[in-house]
Design a protein around this nucleic acid. Structure first.
Length: 706
DNA sequence: CGATTTTGACCTGCGC
DNA sequence: GCGCAGGTCAAAATCG
């Protein structure tokens, strides 16, 4: 659910496909004319491997159209491998011909064959060829693994697609049912025994005014992914509600209902807000902007950029003027907002000229060390790797916002009940009750939504701040004020924690309307992490945790403790899990760090591991597991840290300061992997240490803009 | 010199 | 209708 846009950006990169493809093709043809046979074969196998990858990716990008082709490739490769193995390859010539048949595209084969037929094989060359064969085999193995991974990805996408399809069909069915009001309204028994089956019927009857199909399907999807047994019917009320995570679907449903568009489901805040806004779908941006853009053509804009209303506010401790989220931003305005001495800066994304994403940055009035970054919109371009974490996070948060609004349906919960949640280990809440108008308020039924102009959801990333997502916390915080806000959060954290992280099984008891039993919640959380790593590692992690949770969950009276114990056990005792997690972390660091050169420190709770200059290997070496570590969920985000404690020393806070003066103090990045446990959160965070080249790292160079 | 930031003016929505 | 506040624009200033 999270980071759909991000994933899409990575996979459906319009630049990547063609470029790679062309390059690979060129390499293939060039290598086909070289004299070194082994090299030729290696080159060819690589190029063909790359071509296969490209074609497989293209299959994904085309929305599974080429799924069958990918399957065929995989099967074909397997078949050929078997042939190679079974033939025993009596001679080098046979080796070559077999490999050629396996590895080379037919085009290249035509060129090579004449050369081969005229060649006399010497003993030295023979060994060379054997080496080449071994290399080729290894490469084939890589190709096969890659194909397997792609296959898995395709399967997952197919699952999503099927789920979507089911939901769509269900919606259509519901529409039909609505058109027969007499039968539907007067005979609930009929509905309960409809062809949808007992599960879905129960879902319908238990619905809080929402389309049930989407959630149920989404639930099953999650169940599938978790390899969990199908839940019992009596669990469905919880699970039904827990499905608020599947906001994409709800959003899609809503869009269908409102007739806004036929766009596929998306987690994009714009789309969601569009759905919320209904007939206001033509509006893109705050009024003034919308008016101006409408002058240049409403239709164009509305098609290209859905309206942006949903906001995601990231609240993080950051002494630097801005939080590095990986994107490039250009400041276009600054305003002193009422009630906050610190001015608010307005940025727009400059990665793409037409990108509608904007953000606002402002210091928290109560705590100058806290930076409030409000994102609005979704990037319409491929994102830098370093930007995907934050993008996916905000997207997920926006999704949660929307899902909350959709699942609340005809809900009767007080606003504070719905206004706090925890997504992927993040804390969502209204940071300032006095300004609640601006912040996330769940509309209680779709048709009569009292949607604020800019519904905002806040992610509390203030490291060290307690997890606060409970109703009581918020209620209390509404009574609290100012600097005591977080203290009150800490105090009330223990009472009930309907958070989404997998430690919060207590949710069931304390707030059944929140997030269900925690297992799927944890899945949603750690998927974020897993998806950034090797899928196999992801699966391993996934399996380990799921299994541990399943095992311990039933044996403990306190589900929360059991979850914690399960995770702890999985983390601390299982070397596979550790290695997988290390690999995942390495993947994140290498792929998403974005800031070159500086060291990486892994923190588990208060436990520092790694050090300056620590790369992946160093991380792996130094990774140790803190006994106090109770959970590990998978949220990632980029954050800028600065050693200099100068809360308001940013250029936009102090005119006298210059970008140089601020950027030179930046630390390249901080990756926060969190999450926390109850009662005391133990964030797992990566801190890019202030290396000598920090100031010249790519991240730092971009900081000036962000 | 181009890109970016600053900053005052302007526009719009909303509450009274 | 008026004033306020949020948001944006665009010319000037600044930076690399």
């Amino acid at each position: 659910m999270t980071g759909r846009g991000v994933v899409g950006a990575n996979i459906v990169d319009p630049k990547m496909g063609p470029c790679d493809s062309c390059y690979d093709k060129g390499e293939t043809w060039k290598l086909s004319r070289t004299s070194s046979r082994a090299g030729k074969k290696r080159g060819k196998s690589k190029s063909s491997m790359a071509m296969e990858k490209v074609s497989a990716r293209a299959g994904i990008c085309d929305g599974l159209v080429l799924e069958e082709a990918c399957h065929n490739k995989v099967e074909d490769g397997r078949h050929k491998l078997k042939e190679i193995d079974s033939s025993k390859l009596s001679s080098p010539q046979q080796h070559r011909s077999s490999l050629k048949a396996d590895l080379e595209p037919t085009k290249c084969e035509i060129e090579i064959l004449p050369i081969e037929s005229n060649q006399v094989v010497s003993p030295s060359k023979e060994t060379e060829q054997v080496d080449g064969l071994q290399l080729a085999r290894a490469e084939m193995g890589e190709v096969r693994e890659e194909n397997e991974r792609l296959k898995m990805l395709l399967e997952r996408i197919m699952t999503d697609y099927k789920t979507l399809q089911m939901q769509f069909l269900h919606m259509v069915k519901q529409d039909h049912q609505k058109q027969q009001p007499a039968a539907a309204a007067n005979s609930p028994a009929i509905a309960a025994t409809s062809a949808q089956g007992p599960e879905e019927s129960s879902l319908v009857s238990l619905s809080l005014g929402l389309d049930s199909g989407s959630s149920s399907s989404g639930k099953y999807e999650k169940e599938k992914e978790n390899h969990l047994p199908a839940p019992r019917n009596e669990d469905y009320p919880h699970e039904r509600l827990a499905l608020s995570l599947d906001c994409k679907f709800d959003a899609a449903n809503m869009s269908g209902i409102s007739g806004v568009s036929n766009l596929p489901s998306s987690t994009s805040p714009e789309l969601s807000s569009e759905n919320h806004k209904g007939e206001e779908s033509g509006e893109i941006w705050p009024p003034s902007k919308a008016h101006k853009t409408s002058r240049s053509g409403d239709d164009q804009v509305s098609q290209r950029n859905p309206p942006k209303k949903t906001r995601v506010c990231v609240r993080a401790r950051c002494d630097a003027p801005t939080m590095n989220d990986g994107c490039q931003w250009r400041k276009y305005g600054q305003k002193t907002a009422k009630g906050n001495p610190c001015p608010r800066a307005y940025y727009r994304c400059t990665v793409a000229a037409s990108c509608p994403v904007r953000k606002q940055i402002q210091r928290c009035a109560d705590d100058m060390s806290i930076l409030l970054t409000t994102y609005e919109g979704t990037h319409n371009h491929p994102l830098p790797v370093s930007a995907t974490a934050m993008a996916s996070t905000t997207s997920a948060a926006a999704s949660m916002l929307l899902s909350g609004s959709s699942t609340s349906g005809s809900g009767h919960h007080p606003p504070e009940v719905a206004s706090t949640a925890n997504l992927q280990g993040l804390n969502f809440y209204h940071p300032d009750p006095s300004r609640s108008k601006q912040f996330y308020q769940l509309p209680y039924s779709l048709p009569v939504m009292s949607s604020p102009s800019n519904p905002t959801i806040t992610l509390d990333l203030t490291s060290g701040a307690p997890v606060m997502s409970s109703t009581s916390s918020y209620a209390h915080n509404q009574l609290s004020s100012g600097a005591n806000y977080y203290n009150s959060m800490a105090r009330y954290n223990n009472s009930s924690t309907p958070s989404l992280n997998f430690t919060s099984s207590e949710t069931i008891a304390s707030q059944p309307t929140a997030w269900g039993n925690g297992l799927p919640s944890f899945t949603a959380a750690h998927h974020e992490l897993f998806n950034k790593s090797n899928p196999q590692e992801s699966q391993l992690l996934h399996h380990q945790l799921s299994h541990s949770q399943k095992t311990n969950f039933s044996n403990t009276n306190n589900p929360q403790e059991s979850s914690i114990a399960a995770a702890t056990k999985a983390i601390t005792t299982d070397p596979n899990f550790q290695s997988a997690l290390v690999a995942a972390l390495k993947s994140i660091i290498n792929g998403g760090g974005g800031g070159g050169g500086s060291g990486t420190v892994l923190t588990l709770g208060n436990y520092l591991v790694g050090g300056a200059g620590a790369g992946g290997d160093a991380l792996e070496q130094k990774l140790r597991w803190n006994e106090g570590l109770t959970t590990s969920t998978g949220f990632l985000f980029g954050q800028k840290m600065a050693p200099q404690v100068n809360a308001c020393g940013s250029s936009y806070l102090n005119k006298s300061s210059t970008p140089n003066s601020t950027s030179s103090h930046h630390q390249p990045a901080s990756l926060m992997l969190l999450q926390s446990s109850n009662p005391i959160p133990l964030p797992i965070s990566f801190h890019k240490q202030n290396g000598a080249n920090a100031a010249t790292s790519p991240v730092d160079n971009g900081d000036r803009n962000s």
